[in-house]
Design a protein around this nucleic acid. Structure first.
Length: 458
RNA sequence: GGCGCGGUAGCCAAGUGGUAAGGCCGAGGUCUGCAAAACCUCUAUGCGUCGGUUCAAUUCCGACCCGCGCCUCCA
C-alpha cells in the first residue's frame, strides 16, 4: 500500500518513492528540520516532530528495516543560541548542550524514535564553507563590504517556486535593508561576519575572501543534507513556517551549488495553536512538555492529543483535549491488553493503515482504530494491534505517574475506612472517603484490598 | 496588499454528488454497599450565510460573512 503525501511544491498528493528492495544501497532519504537549541521546545514544536516520527515509522513499516535514512538536525549556532549564551553568561556549547539534552529527554518521553543521524551546525562548518565558496565561484553569492556573504536570488530564476512569492512585498523597512549590506532585499546571508559586541567568542574562519564569522541559518541544512543524504533527497519536511524563507533558500543554495534537484518531495505540517493563535515565546502562550507533565498528564497522552488533528490543518491545543486523549489512550491500552495472541482476522486494521498512508490522516486512522476496538477483541490478534500502536508510537504502557509518597495520615484514614467497610459501617466508610478526597487522594476499592491514588489536577 | 488554510453536534474531528466515521463530555443501564474502573445503549433530518448547477449538495460553482497562518526570529 503506497504512501501518499501532500507535496508543497506541486500542491498535490504524490506517492512517495519506493526504494529498490533488492538494492541494499538504495534507501529512502528523509530530512526533517530540527529544533534550535536555545530553550525548551514547546508542544507546538513537538507536534511537528511527532508527525514526522509517525511518518518515519510508516516508512520503515512499508519499506523494511534499514531502507529509510532519517536525518534531523540541531541548530546550535544562530542569533538566538548566541544571544541566550550571552544572557546566561555561559559558553555557546554549554547552552546548546543543556537544551539538546532536554530536547532528547522530551523526545524520548513522547516515544519519538531517534533519527538515524542528528547532525549539528557547528559540527559542519567546513561543509558549509565549502558550499559557500562554490556558490561564490559560480556567481550565486557575493561578499558584502563587512565581509559577510549573501546569496543573490537574482541569480536563481526559479527562486520562489515553493512559496509562490514572486515580488516581495516590502514590509521591511529600508533601514534593515541598508544595515545588512545586501544588494537586494530578498538576498539572504550565507555567512555572517563576526561582530565582537554580539558574538562573544563564536567565530570560525570564513570562506575565501570573506571575514571570519559564522554561517547563516539556511546553509546548515543544505550542507548537512549533502553530507549525510546526498545531493538529491526523497523527502524534506518541517513546519509550515519554514516554507518561506528557510526552505526556499535551501533550494536556491543546494540547487545552485550542486546543479541537481534538491528534494523530490516537500511536506509541511501545520501549526498547533493555543487560544486560537500560534504559540510563541514572545506571546508567552506556550506549553512545554514539562508543564503538562506537572499537570499529571502522561507524555504519551500528549502524543495522542497531538495526533488528534490532521497534520496539515491548524489544531487548537487545549487542556480539554488532553483529558479526552487520556481517556482514549486508556481505552486503547485496555483493548490491546485484552487481545488474544492469535487470531484469524489479520486484516482487521487495514482501514487504519490506509488512512495513515493517505496523507497521514490521523483523525480518520484513529476513527478506524476505534471502530475496530468497538467491535471487540474477538478474532483480532495482539500482534496486529501492536503494529498499529507501533505506527502511532503509542505502543508502550503509560509511564507510571510520579509516585507521590502517601502521607501517613491518609494511610491511617484508608485503613480505618477499609475496616469500617468490612464491618459494614458504611456511614463511617463514606465519611472517611470524603476526608481522603478532601486531602487530595482517591481510594479505589477492589475485592481484596484497595489502592490510593492522588486525585488528578484539573 | 500578496500567498495559503479553515468554519460539520456541548467540545475535538473525519468524510462523501444520493441524505453524516470516530474520540471526549452528557444521559440511561449492567456490575460492584458507595465511589472508581469495565462493559452495553442513546445523543446532528443537518454540515458559516445567500444564490446557482443537478433527479439529488454538507460534498461542485459564485458571492458574501467570520476565524487563523505566512510574507525574511519562528515547528
Amino acid at each position: 500500500m503506497a504512501i501518499r503525501l501532500h507535496d508543497s511544491l506541486t500542491r498535490s498528493l504524490q506517492e512517495l518513492r519506493r526504494p529498490d528492495p533488492t538494492d541494499p544501497r538504495d534507501v529512502f532519504t528523509f530530512y526533517n528540520c530540527g529544533p534550535t537549541v536555545y530553550g525548551p521546545a514547546h508542544i507546538g514544536n513537538f507536534r511537528t516532530f511527532v508527525v514526522n516520527d509517525v511518518l518515519r515509522r510508516l516508512l520503515e513499516l512499508e519499506y523494511g528495516p534499514g531502507k529509510v535514512k532519517h536525518v534531523r538536525n540541531l541548530t546550535d549556532v544562530d542569533d538566538r543560541t548566541i544571544g541566550q549564551a550571552k544572557k546566561d553568561q555561559r559558553s555557546l556549547a554549554e547552552i546548546t548542550r543543556k537544551w539538546t539534552d532536554l530536547f532528547h529527554a522530551d523526545c524520548a518521553a513522547l516515544n519519538c524514535l531517534p533519527p538515524h543521524v542528528e547532525p549539528t551546525a557547528t559540527g559542519h562548518i567546513r561543509e558549509q564553507v565549502d558550499m559557500i565558496e562554490v556558490l561564490m565561484e559560480k556567481g550565486n553569492a557575493y561578499r558584502a563590504p563587512d565581509g559577510s556573504v549573501y546569496f543573490k536570488i537574482a541569480s536563481f530564476p526559479e527562486y520562489g517556486a515553493l512559496s509562490r512569492i514572486k515580488e516581495r512585498e516590502l514590509k521591511v523597512t529600508n533601514s534593515a535593508f541598508d544595515a545588512d549590506h545586501k544588494d537586494d532585499i530578498g538576498d539572504f546571508a550565507l555567512w555572517k561576519a563576526y561582530k565582537p559586541e554580539e558574538d562573544g567568542d563564536v567565530q570560525w574562519p570564513g570562506p575565501r575572501t570573506a571575514a571570519a564569522g559564522r554561517p547563516g541559518w539556511h546553509i546548515e541544512c543544505s550542507a548537512m543534507i549533502k553530507r549525510h543524504l546526498g545531493e538529491t533527497i526523497d523527502l524534506h519536511t518541517g513546519g509550515v513556517d519554514l516554507l518561506f524563507p528557510h526552505h526556499e533558500n535551501e533550494i536556491a543554495q543546494s540547487q545552485c551549488c550542486n546543479g541537481t534537484i534538491f528534494a523530490r518531495h516537500w511536506y509541511h505540517s501545520e501549526h498547533l495553536l493555543v487560544d486560537g493563535t500560534t504559540m510563541s515565546k514572545s506571546k508567552g502562550n506556550y506549553y512545554t512538555l514539562g508543564d503538562l507533565v506537572q499537570k499529571d498528564f502522561d507524555p504519551l497522552v500528549v502524543r495522542l492529543a497531538l495526533l488528534q488533528g490532521h497534520p496539515r490543518k491548524q489544531q487548537n491545543f487545549t487542556l480539554d483535549s488532553l483529558h479526552s486523549a487520556d481517556k482514549a489512550l486508556t481505552t486503547i491500552h485496555s483493548y490491546w491488553q485484552s487481545l488474544p495472541l492469535k487470531a484469524d482476522r489479520a486484516t482487521a486494521f487495514d482501514a487504519v493503515f490506509s488512512a495513515l498512508h493517505d496523507d497521514l490522516n490521523f483523525p480518520a486512522a484513529l476513527g478506524a482504530f476505534f471502530t475496530v476496538i468497538n467491535r471487540g477483541p474477538s478474532g483480532v490478534a495482539k500482534s496486529d494491534c501492536e503494529k498499529v500502536l507501533f505506527a502511532l508510537g503509542l505502543g508502550r504502557e503509560p509511564a507510571k505517574r510520579p509516585d507521590r509518597r502517601i502521607p501517613d495520615a491518609i494511610t491511617a484514614f484508608a485503613e480505618k475506612r477499609w475496616a469500617a467497610k468490612l464491618a459494614k459501617d458504611f456511614a463511617t466508610a463514606d465519611a472517611l472517603r470524603k476526608e481522603i478526597a478532601a486531602a487530595g487522594w482517591s481510594m479505589l476499592d477492589r475485592k481484596d484490598g484497595y489502592s490510593l491514588e492522588p486525585l488528578k489536577k484539573a
